[in-house]
């Protein structure tokens, strides 16, 4: 698993390079440009703007220039937000997105593992069945259906929480729940399946024969191996949360990175889109790296490999 983590780090740079390259040439191959929407732009002004941002150069030169900046940690200026750098836009949005994302991840992890464990311990009982059916319903509830319903109930009918915007910790709650729900359901299913399998293992029978109470058997003996698939799932889950944040930030009107991405793509704000793609790509890779390390810490056999 350490090999795997090292491999992950080694492939990180080429992966990000491919990611940026693909996005870059995709955008430049597409019709339209960053200054199309402003209709009344005089040709000479547009030419001046193009020259200012080097858009008059061939695509490969622009790409080279972009990479050159990247090496020095410069994500370039935004083409749409005047006099703002992409880095500063991301820096503005990142804490907001991170707060919602972290809250959602925590919620999904704690809720999912707890529900899954409960179901596994009552295998084939009514609790197990209802948790599993609920989890399947959760998987089938897209965040953009959950989000409006949450607003309708908890912000409009019962005015407990803000319907949107970004004003204090209370505004994290509803978006985090909407974002967490599908992941919570997935984690509950994973945990239940894995824990059910582990509890049937011969070494669990040994633990029972030692006279250990069920609490110790589940928490000391079974939970750790049962969490391995959950830990592996955290990589894709993080990607899923980032994707979901695009919608959730839109519905709740939260000033996070997800909104910049959609707006940036619509406006052909090349540098902003590239910056966000790069940021998310790097984040997911970093997350997977941590997952690899955590996996190694949990599994003594993987540690040796």
């Amino acid at each position: 698993m350490l090999n795997r983590a090292a491999m992950r780090l080694l492939t990180a740079v080429p992966t990000l390079f491919v990611l940026v390259g693909l996005s870059f040439f995709l955008m430049h191959a597409a019709p339209g440009g960053p200054f199309d929407s402003e209709r009344s732009l005089a040709p000479e002004i547009e030419a001046r703007l193009a020259a200012q941002f080097h858009l008059d150069e061939p695509a490969w030169m622009q790409f080279g220039r972009y990479l050159g900046g990247l090496v020095q940690g410069d994500l370039g200026p935004s083409l749409q937000y005047e006099s703002r750098s992409v880095a500063s836009l991301i820096a503005d949005g990142a804490p907001v997105s991170a707060a919602v994302g972290a809250a959602a991840l925590l919620l999904a992890l704690i809720g999912g593992v707890a529900l899954g464990a409960l179901a596994a311990m009552r295998r084939d009982g009514w609790l197990d069945r209802s948790v599993m059916v609920l989890a399947l319903v959760g998987l089938s509830l897209p965040s953009y259906v959950v989000a409006p319903v949450l607003i309708l109930v908890f912000a409009l009918q019962l005015p407990w929480l803000p319907a949107g915007g970004w004003d204090g910790p209370a505004s994290v709650l509803l978006p985090a729940v909407a974002l967490a729900l599908p992941q919570l359901a997935a984690i509950a299913r994973l945990t239940r399946g894995a824990l059910g399998e582990v509890l049937a293992a011969p070494w669990i029978r040994t633990a029972r024969a030692k006279g250990l109470p069920e609490r110790l058997i589940v928490f000391r003996h079974a939970l750790k191996p049962a969490l391995l698939p959950v830990v592996s799932w955290l990589g894709p889950a993080a990607a899923g949360l980032m994707t979901g944040s695009v919608v959730v930030e839109q519905v709740f009107g939260i000033p996070g990175i997800g909104r910049y991405f959609v707006q940036g793509a619509l406006n052909r704000d090349y540098t902003l889109v590239l910056g966000v793609v790069l940021f998310y790509g790097a984040l997911v890779i970093a997350f997977n790296f941590l997952v690899d390390l955590a996996y190694g810490a949990l599994d003594p056999q993987a540690r040796l490999e």
């Binding site: 990589g235 990607a239 994707t243 991405f261 959609v262 793509a265």
Partner: peptide
């Protein structure tokens, strides 16, 4: 499978969004 692993770890949805917006 290494390629699948790498792709698996990417926020793929962003590509789809990009494709949709651009083309």
């Amino acid at each position: 499978m290494r390629i699948v692993d790498i792709l698996y770890a990417l926020p793929f949805m962003f590509f789809v969004i990009l494709l949709m917006v651009l083309f």
